[in-house]
Design a protein around this nucleic acid. Structure first.
Lengths: 338, 338
DNA sequence: TTGTAAGCGTTATCAT
DNA sequence: ATGATAACGCTTACAA
């Protein structure tokens, strides 16, 4: 009733008003001016639901977050979201976050969400090898942008941190600090990022001609508990590492706790480093050496790729960010001579 | 086109199919059975957008989170969200989270969001004294449930933790541990919760006949930096506290850091306690004594109140949760004799 | 119990 | 450059 009223008020037809409002070219500049002004005065706002039904576009982009993992809590990730949200908002798009619980079927939730018409595109996080979500989105030809690279799809859109380089750097740092036995508690193996991190680690180790003990190379969830149990196992080995790299700073926190429980002094007896430069890492004791990247920028970039895709501009499809070491205490003063 | 197709396929009218699908009573049980089965087989899903336009209901409830504060990151709060989301999902509602950036006008964002028809109700967090958001929602008669009590509106819906009791307990604990000079770094003064926490603190102090030094009672943002600067100021006072209570565990983290920087040993020279029982509090050094509550439950309760409201059932409008002390190292072994 | 038909507020196709 | 009018997919009086 509303565009209708506005039209009547102006003595114009709905269609003209609609065109004027939506920036079509075939409208008399004067008419447009009048319409815009009247809309302003009357306080007319187009009804998004009706718009959506008529146009098939929602101007929303969605993201589905597991309610139970730390993803929803990861300080780094929430900045990514903030960056994406801000960029979208500037372009009159909205970010819609829904959660998925453990008891829900992931594929189903994704399928329902995209077929609900609520969103024009989807952000995908924690991308996995042979990710069924990606497969489905490709099949349905539904626009998406991933946080984390994916392989096997030429024209896939993603932004990622150069994890390989990041962990190459971090490992190299350990080597330069004199370590020879370096463990790596990697992310869950199904995540694509775990592979690249592992590669970076391996490359540095091989370049330095250091032994890569398979027992020092583990995969686990990005939380304290997983890190604690892995650390305990590793540190009880006959041949144990002098340095432990972690896939993120929460793991580093757990690793520190586990080492202390075992009687080691992190930062003195044993080196520990993480990834993500979470807020608490500065305040941890010892403070945690970590890898920092432009979280806000990553989010913005994801949004940018998405808008390009949705509005069919020419665009790059992939974007890489660089992580840099933030050196702190946790790996700084460890004596490593045998 | 879809319900139409389903109807044609069944040889029924759209309306009958619609009624059958939506559980109306005036439908032949047999007909309903057939319709449901056919829908199942064909894989028919009602288009939510069309439903929304026709019915004026979205089956979505929204929440607007500041992208920049720690709200989005607070581990406790993300569990609240998870609880709410799960409960809503069980009842075929969705939680929609949008973010608001610093440069956006809050009232505007709220107004736009509710008038967008995207949500049937709103969760409000960080409720404030004379909260303009509440005023607006009341004026527009738009359903909402607050996290944090609000005053001045009889039939307001909220769930809250008994903050007064919580900080009464926490303060009392300090007193029983022998402290006489107890500081309190409270939340931002505009938040309603800061008042009740202060009241709890004051009550315990007064019951014990202890001096309440106004300089020891501060308000600040719930993050490390705010706590650090407040702690430094307080600890440089001629008469300084032997115990510092914090409005949440991130503040406690900052307080610990600041005390250490000043040469104190938290948990030994000075007692510190927080609120929220964040994940990192167990791993902090010293580990942080905190107040824990049923975060998931709070979220579920918010969702429950919301659904009651939306579906106009009789219901309680308010719900209180209890917080309990989790005793750890940060305030355990502090010697307090003068 | 079922069907008809008029909305819901837009956009989009065709004329004019 | 503007106006009718038919979608969009569903709900909901009202009629039958």
């Amino acid at each position: 009733m509303s565009i209708k009223k506005l039209a009547e008020h102006l003595g114009l037809s709905k269609s003209t008003v609609s065109r004027a409002l939506n920036g079509y070219t075939d409208v008399n500049p004067d008419t447009r001016k009048k319409v815009l002004q009247a809309a302003q005065e009357i306080g007319y706002k187009a009804n998004p639901t009706a718009k959506r039904l008529a146009s098939g576009k929602s101007r929303n982009v969605g993201i589905i977050l597991p309610a139970n993992t730390r993803m929803f809590v990861s300080p780094a990730f929430s900045k990514v979201l903030a960056g994406a949200s801000a960029f979208l908002a500037k372009h009159d798009y909205q970010l819609i976050v829904t959660t998925i619980s453990e008891w829900q079927n992931e594929q189903q939730v994704y399928a329902d969400f995209i077929s609900s018409g609520m969103v024009d595109g989807l952000f995908i996080v924690r991308t996995r090898h042979n990710d069924e979500r990606i497969t489905m989105l490709n099949e349905r030809n539904f626009p998406y942008v991933c946080h984390g690279y994916i392989e096997g799809f030429e024209d896939a859109l993603f932004v990622d941190v150069d994890n390989k380089d990041a962990f190459y750097q971090l490992t190299k740092r350990q080597i330069e600090l004199g370590h020879k036995r370096i463990a790596f508690l990697d992310a869950p193996i199904e995540l694509t990022l775990s592979q690249s991190r592992k590669q970076g680690y391996l490359r540095a180790m091989q370049e330095a001609n250091l032994e890569v003990n398979e027992r020092w190379l583990r995969n686990g969830e990005l939380n304290e508990d997983a890190a604690i149990s892995m650390t305990k196992e590793i540190m009880s080995l006959a041949k144990r590492p002098t340095s432990i790299l972690c896939a993120d700073d929460t793991m580093a926190l757990g690793t520190i706790a586990a080492c202390e429980e075992l009687g080691y002094q992190p930062g003195i007896d044993i080196a520990i480093a993480g990834y993500g430069d979470y807020e608490h890492s500065r305040y941890s004791k010892p403070s945690i050496t970590s890898l920092a990247y432009d979280t806000l920028g990553v989010g913005e970039e994801m949004a940018k790729l998405m808008l390009n895709k949705l509005e069919k501009k020419n665009f790059p499809t992939q974007s890489w960010y660089h992580a840099e070491i933030v050196a702190r205490q946790s790996d700084a003063n460890v004596i490593t001579e045998e």
